[in-house]
Design a protein around this nucleic acid. Structure first.
Length: 814
DNA sequence: CTAGGGTTAG
């Protein structure tokens, strides 16, 4: 028997046999197993190496190998190379590998595996080249490692080279290797190429079907993936757990709950439901189909949950808006001793961002650091998003700045953060920097930057970004187009908004909502209602936001009956449950029109506990109608819910001021001081086309200050001659009293004066105010529009006022 | 050395 063995030399690099790969493999295995004397492979050191589980153990065994003179044995050399690679030390593996004089094939193959799997795939590819140069015959599994690496890193060119090498070495008939090729093309997003290889496979077994199914699913061809599952069954192959896990995300993405349920049945019949990864994929499918409750039932029934199951449920609740349950589940997961991953933390951060839970967000930040996830890009993006949504834009900015590597999503998150926090200039600066760093903006970038510009209400910028969007061909995206409609409406150009709206052939529900809301804030209640009717005629289902927009549009235009009707058809015709925002909008609708008793009764009849916004709307209405009785009732409930919002204290103080209850006004001011509550200082800005100038009440830091005040003085005289009478009560509003002695100079008036001084006669003036416009300024602006023959468009916190020829589009109802 | 497929995500 021993006489038939090949000498070791024939396997070394010096002598190449012309044997086919498979027979050579068998021979060298035999040689290795049998040529090596028993005292070598049965040596205690060999056994220790087999049992070795860590680098530390390995380092302890090495002296033993050397002491026993076993270091030169191929068996030990191969094993050492393999173990060093496994524990991540390519350097030490190389230190063993390189000095060996007669390297056998096995050593090369081991080293190649190490490079391909534990180093960069590029190292694996170059080592492959060297191996060929050294005259070593590759074996089929060398290609499988390389193909996997190319696929994971999306290296199409290298992947194709390996594919070619595979064919050259005569492996095109090997299902295992060719399945790797299918997988490589699929991972490189060349699903058509993957399919071409798949149909030519010598044999299509379960694994190769699974590969192509997963390929279609991961490349977004969900329907095709589902189709292929039926096709494989036509070929008498039964879907296994991996088929199911691959196809369920596709079913979920399409929202095919019927197919999803039938797969659930199949899982049950096959007894796969006890597999945690199968159940986990089911959770994901049900959540994507919108059945949170079904997902929860499955989750609760699972005997073994993996970390992905938790992650999916935590994110499912966050996604559905139930931040509370999401965070409860997260806590439960920690209590169960399950170690969270980056994805867990991202999901929980999502919930914190939605609920504005900063302290828990900070806890998650510390936890992420403890888990060593500092350099995890998606996680840092989520942190930036959380800090932005919790109004900690400086912290968000710092995190962003310190990122070693930024993806486009990082830029988008940061820009959105600045946009949502009203930092328009920072948003625009980052947009410019992003392009300087050669990161192409996408539709998300554009939506953020457009909404930043909407916030600033600068028409010239609006037109500029519209041009940028068009030139980059992103204006075909429905979300971008919707953002443009919203932007023009928010920049005062409601008719341009409508033109863009009419040009869109594909409209999303948010597109309709943006347009209806635009009409609403411009006081065009009639147009808003017409659009709503058009929407119903076109069989487009309104959502809860649509109703919020239409009710608020009715409120701005004083259409009480219509508003009440929309509130009832929302429930009766569309089965949409009102949210707290809807209740707030209804109280605003009734209250603003002076039906304070009705509004109060409405609050009392609410089926849920009224929130801050509901009492806030009530208090606002009482302020307009100078009703102290209801105002105090609303304020009392309000301060119990949210004792630290300065805006509501100011509102109540203004209510008292409007009826000259000065000691009450002072009482509130003292209370605010004692509690350290600050009010938002009011400011107004005027858009001069290429510059924007901002003014605080009574501010005098502007370089043209003297000129502005002089002009304003003559202007006030002029409107007095035309019949304007200053409303002293309204002027004593505490909203804007940054400097008490200057209350007569509210920021709006300064901004208008500066606008008049710096624009040509006849040009429209665009003003933006961060708070609600005050009664005296409103009245004065009407007169200014008359005597100066100017159209003045003022956007305040809630709506637009178009002043022209002495009247305002709001009809003094705001 | 001793081969191929899979689930969550900004």
């Amino acid at each position: 028997m021993s006489s038939q063995l090949l000498p070791v030399a024939s396997l070394s690099t010096t002598s190449r046999s012309s044997l086919s790969p498979s027979s050579s493999r068998i021979q060298h295995t035999l040689a290795q197993r049998t040529h090596i004397p028993a005292h070598v492979y049965k040596h205690p050191a060999a056994i220790l190496l087999e049992l070795c589980t860590s680098m530390e153990e390995l380092r302890q065994i090495i002296p033993l190998i050397i002491k026993n003179g076993l270091y030169e044995e191929h068996l030990f050399q191969t094993k050492l190379v393999s173990l060093f690679c496994k524990y991540g030390s390519l350097t030490e593996a190389t230190r063993v590998f390189e000095p060996i004089e007669n390297k056998n094939d096995a050593l090369y193959h081991t080293m190649l595996k190490g490079y391909a799997q534990n180093s960069s795939i590029f190292d694996g590819l170059s080592f492959y080249c060297r191996m060929i140069e050294d005259g070593v015959q590759p074996v089929v599994y060398n290609f499988t490692y390389l193909l996997k690496g190319c696929g994971e890193n999306c290296l199409v060119k290298n992947g194709k080279q390996v594919h070619a090498q595979l064919i050259l070495n005569g492996h095109e008939g090997d299902v295992y290797a060719m399945t790797c090729v299918v997988n490589m093309y699929a991972k490189c997003r060349l699903i058509d190429d993957a399919h071409k290889v798949f149909v030519r496979l010598p044999e299509r077994d379960l694994v190769s079907w699974n590969t192509i199914i997963a390929g279609y699913a991961q490349n977004g061809f969900a329907g095709r993936a589902i189709e292929l599952v039926s096709q494989m069954q036509d070929e008498q192959l039964k879907p296994d757990p991996i088929t199911i896990i691959s196809v369920l995300p596709a079913v979920g993405n399409l929202g095919y709950s019927t197919i999803g349920k039938s797969i659930h049945g199949y899982i049950f019949r096959s007894g796969y439901e006890c597999l945690s990864n199968v159940s986990t994929a089911l959770l994901d499918m049900y959540l994507k189909c919108g059945s949170l409750s079904t997902a929860r039932v499955i989750f609760d029934k699972m005997s073994v949950r993996n970390v992905v199951s938790w992650n999916i449920m935590i994110d499912g609740y966050a996604e559905s808006g139930d931040s509370m349950e999401s965070l409860i589940l997260f806590q439960k997961m920690l209590d169960d001793g399950i170690k969270p991953t980056g994805v867990t933390i991202m999901a929980a951060l999502h919930a914190c961002a939605d609920s504005g839970d900063l302290s828990r967000g900070q806890f998650l930040h510390r936890l992420a650091n403890e888990l060593g996830l500092q350099n995890n890009i998606p996680l840092t993006n989520s942190l930036i998003s959380m800090y932005s949504k919790c109004k900690q834009i400086e912290i968000a900015g710092k995190l962003f700045k310190n990122m070693k590597e930024k993806t486009r999503v990082s830029w988008n998150t940061m820009i959105l953060g600045y946009a949502q926090n009203g930092h328009v200039i920072e948003a625009l600066n980052h947009f410019r920097e992003m392009k300087l760093e050669n990161i192409e903006p996408d539709s998300f970038t554009m939506v953020s930057i457009i909404s930043a510009i909407s916030e600033s209400s600068i028409l010239l910028q609006a037109k500029w970004i519209h041009g940028v969007v068009t030139r980059s061909f992103l204006d075909r995206n429905v979300f971008v187009k919707t953002a443009l409609v919203d932007m023009y409406a928010k920049c005062g150009a409601i008719s341009i908004a409508r033109k863009l709206f009419d040009l869109m052939d594909e409209k999303h529900i948010t597109t309709w909502n943006a347009m209806i809301d635009g009409y609403g804030t411009h006081g065009c209640g009639k147009e808003a209602i017409e659009l709503f009717n058009k929407m119903e005629n076109e069989n487009i289902k309104p959502n809860n936001i649509t109703f919020l927009c239409i009710i608020s549009a009715c409120s701005h235009s004083g259409f009480i009956k219509e508003g009440v009707r929309y509130f009832s058809i929302m429930k009766e015709k569309y089965a949409i449950d009102p949210t707290m925002d809807h209740y707030g909008a209804m109280v605003d609708l009734l209250g603003r029109s002076g039906r304070l008793q009705e509004a109060w009764d409405f609050i009392l009849k609410m089926p849920v506990e009224p929130g801050v916004n509901v009492f806030g709307a009530m208090l606002g209405a009482c302020r307009i109608h100078k009703n102290v009785k209801f105002g105090e009732m609303a304020a009392e409930r309000l301060f119990k819910l949210n004792p630290n919002d300065g805006g509501y204290y100011v509102l109540l103080a203004n209510l008292y001021a409007s009826v000259s209850m000065w000691d009450k006004v002072n009482e509130i001011r003292t209370k605010m001081e004692r509690k350290g509550i600050v009010k938002t200082p009011g400011f107004s800005s005027v858009d001069l086309g290429n510059e924007v100038h901002s003014f605080y009440s009574g501010s005098s830091w502007h370089s043209d200050s003297k000129k502005i005040y002089d002009f304003l003085e003559t202007l006030m005289e002029k409107i007095k001659d035309a019949g304007y009478v200053a409303d002293v009560d309204l002027m004593r509003d505490v909203e804007d009293d940054v400097e008490e002695h200057m209350v007569s100079v509210h920021s709006e008036k300064l901004a208008i004066a500066y606008g008049l001084l710096n624009t040509r006669p006849g040009n429209t003036i665009h003003i933006r105010k961060n708070l609600r416009v005050c009664g005296d300024c409103h009245n004065a602006t009407k007169f200014i529009s008359l005597v100066e023959k100017r159209e003045i468009i003022v956007r305040d916190l809630h709506r637009f006022h178009h002043f022209k020829d002495g009247i305002c589009s709001c009809g003094d109802y705001w």
